[in-house]
């Protein structure tokens, strides 16, 4: 199960927030194939957003082939976005953790590190731009 956290002041529409958060959960392996997404009722009761927003987000995920909705049963994860390289115990992650430690020792603040990473991301993955406000 995932729990969606909707930030009303992020400028990002609740619809996109649900899509993004689901994908993140799929990437991180929080959601695995066969897992059920919370029902619209559960989501709206917890987040107080419009039910149609949730359903629209679920439809978008379905369109992308990430989830299956079975009428009268619920919405289930079809495939994971998790890559073994992103798992908590992966080598890449360990390297990043070590880098973080070094950055701290070098006297960087959290923001400095984030800026550095973002910069490196942009040059390392030039084809994608990050969404956001």
């Amino acid at each position: 199960m995932v729990e969606y956290l909707i930030d009303r002041h992020s400028g990002l529409s609740p619809y996109l927030q649900i899509v993004e958060q689901t994908k993140r959960a799929l990437r991180l392996g929080v959601l695995l194939p066969g897992d059920q997404l919370p029902t619209a009722r559960e989501v709206v009761e917890a987040t107080a957003i419009n039910p149609n927003t949730v359903l629209k987000a679920y439809r978008e995920l379905e369109r992308e082939g990430l989830v299956d909705s079975r009428r009268g049963v619920g919405t289930f994860v079809r495939r994971s976005l998790a890559k073994p390289q992103t798992a908590a115990d992966s080598a890449l992650r360990a390297e990043l953790a070590a880098w973080m430690l070094r950055a701290r020792e070098a006297g960087l603040e959290r923001e400095d590190a984030a800026a550095l990473i973002s910069d490196a991301l942009d040059s390392g993955f030039p084809e994608t731009t990050t969404g956001g406000p």
Binding site: E3, P38, R41, E42, V43, E45, A46
Partner: peptide, 8 residues
């Protein structure tokens, strides 16, 4: 979610 919390 709130619905499912027994005891509430």
């Amino acid at each position: 979610m709130a619905t499912d919390l027994p005891g509430r």
